[in-house]
Design a protein around this nucleic acid. Structure first.
Lengths: 345, 345
DNA sequence: TTGAAAGCGATACCAG
DNA sequence: CTGGTATCGCTTTCAA
């Protein structure tokens, strides 16, 4: 009697069963050879490894995670990928997660709340171990879903307001206030604010609000203000600055909501023959890699993105291991460069 | 007789079965209500949807993809996340994939081949529908795994050499050659090359090689050359430029391997009192958002990142639908700005 | 139009 | 140390 094995050399991706069959052991011996190598006889283990190598076996995590308890995905939801805004957060976070074999699933909402809901839903459908998401302001349904998921949720970049679970970021109102304070300290009095302040970018709104409030506190209202709904870039900055000069020629300082906008502002002011920092001061936010290389070097506020990324990874591990949720405020620094150094210290 | 249902109100994540039970239908009716709504009576469908909404049901894709045929993940492997190098590729790619409900799983190798192997393996373990990866030069085992996976593999950013499946990018040697050609056309004769040229960054190496070859063809060897293994940034550029001036004061043009390095080079040259473009010309690669905003505005080469992202998404769909692999060369442009305009046109 | 039942590929608990 | 067997949550024939 012959047992016919219909192993018709189908070039299907190998499974645990394939190699179990080839080695002549049971499926779960192979599984253990992977999961708990020392529970398998050395010689067997070796043959199993050889077979895996030969067949280019790659475990199927869909199956693994479905049956096992944990998933090794961490959902990361950002609002933008451009201009280094969050790149180094993602970079640091990703590499820290990798050390624990966690895989990043990335989503970019582009500041669109509908998109955000859709993406969060999509990410949750992968049953991630945790979700890290930019901002603390989300559509109610997003909050509901994230809460209902029962996994650790780390909100990054911003703090304040209602936090779903844990947050790691800083107070953007304070950043705006610091911009105003610095300009005032340097002797500027006719303050303006320009930049991209989108309807759904609460952080930008907070910075603007903080700026206005601080200026008002110093008796400097009204402040000229020119914002746009589109994303920030140098051309926008240039356009807004030119318009600002036309409308308010008396302006002697400009705060920008981002460095890339400030780059264009500097260009516009230079074209109009303004001397910086003497005639007019410029301060921004973000500390883009080029901020120290433009003319004049740009005074700006530098958030500690690496730290946020690292602490987020730490928080994810901690929460997974059962520690309590917490909110961590991360320092930022005002980097004074020549675009505002009116008063020699 | 009483049937005891041990439905101990466990706050577990709802499954298809949960809502099937609540609505009083079978599991696969609910499944069909999701997958093929018009095969379910309207009234029933409605009740099912209500239940899903109430319970905040999110389908478990691990299960779905395990049982079904398709996976909706696309693995995206990049070598860096900093400095906008690939950000807009990822951004465009991601949003194009989203239109087809494909989810990006991101990995960053940081130019480390061991990491690359590990990450590719990890990504393949999720049984993605396709993989998009930066570069056409990978460790042999990576190539083997990707080939064995049987899914579409799109190599981005570079072309030439052996392609695994499909490629969308451009010839980096030509870019380097174009840098040299432009400098020579503008009348520069003592050419130098500086920047980060890592051991595992084949693209950077190709650009350097193309530059040297083109210069040699014009009888301009030897070219001074100063490279580093670390990643490019303005400080590196400044350091290298200062060293270059010390060693080769006769230099009259510098090609940089990236814009961020060039930013530092400009700063160094300015500090040393060099006039640009008169005394010395500078050309770079990348067209960083700030390239037009530094002093002098930087001549550089602009790759079309959006196009690469979009075409990669297109290629993924096409390959999934059975079209043949192909290599697509994407245009790039030399953007001449004031850092090299010696000859007035 | 709806339901029952058989997998998908791995894990985990129990036996042997 | 090794092998059955149930199970994870969903999709997918095949019947009813």
């Amino acid at each position: 009697m012959t047992i016919e094995i219909d192993d018709t050399e189908t070039r299907a991706t190998p499974t645990l069963a394939s190699i179990a069959q080839q080695v002549g052991v049971s499926v779960n011996t192979v599984s253990r050879a992977l999961r708990a190598p020392n529970t398998v006889r050395a010689e067997l283990r070796k043959r199993i490894n050889v077979a895996m190598e030969e067949l280019n076996y790659v475990p199927n995590r869909l199956a693994g995670c479905l049956s096992g308890t944990r998933t090794d995905i961490v959902g990361v939801v950002v609002t933008s990928l451009y201009y280094s805004e969050f790149a180094s957060i993602i970079d640091t976070l990703q590499s820290a997660l990798l050390d624990r074999d966690l895989q990043v699933m990335l989503a970019n909402t582009r500041y669109n709340p509908d998109q955000e809901l859709r993406l969060v839903r999509s990410i949750l459908s992968w049953r991630p171990a945790a979700v890290a998401i930019i901002g603390v302001d989300h559509p109610p349904k997003v909050v509901e879903l994230l809460k209902a998921s029962g996994i650790p949720i780390i909100e990054m970049w911003d703090t304040g307001g209602e936090v779903i679970d844990s947050a790691i970021g800083f107070d953007h109102e304070e950043v705006g206030a610091a911009q105003a304070r610095h300009l005032i300290e340097q002797g500027y009095r006719k303050l303006a604010f320009v930049g991209s302040v989108r309807e759904n970018d609460r952080r930008a709104q907070k910075r603007l609000h903080g700026f206005e409030t601080e200026a008002a506190a110093a008796g400097l209202v009204p402040v000229a203000k020119l914002t746009a709904q589109q994303g920030g870039n140098p051309d926008l900055g240039e356009r807004l600055a030119l318009e600002l000069l036309d409308r308010h020629p008396e302006i002697d300082a400009v705060a920008c909501n981002s460095d890339v906008v400030a780059f264009g502002v500097l260009r516009a002011l230079t074209k109009r023959g303004k001397r910086m920092p003497e005639d007019i001061g410029v301060i921004a936010f973000g500390d883009n890699e080029a901020a120290a290389c433009v003319t004049p070097p740009l005074t700006t506020i530098r958030p500690d993105r690496e730290r946020i990324g690292r602490l987020t990874a730490d928080a994810i591990f901690a929460r997974i291991n059962g520690t309590e949720p917490r909110t961590t405020v991360v320092d930022w620094h005002l980097v004074a460069r020549d675009s505002t150094r009116r008063r020699k210290p």
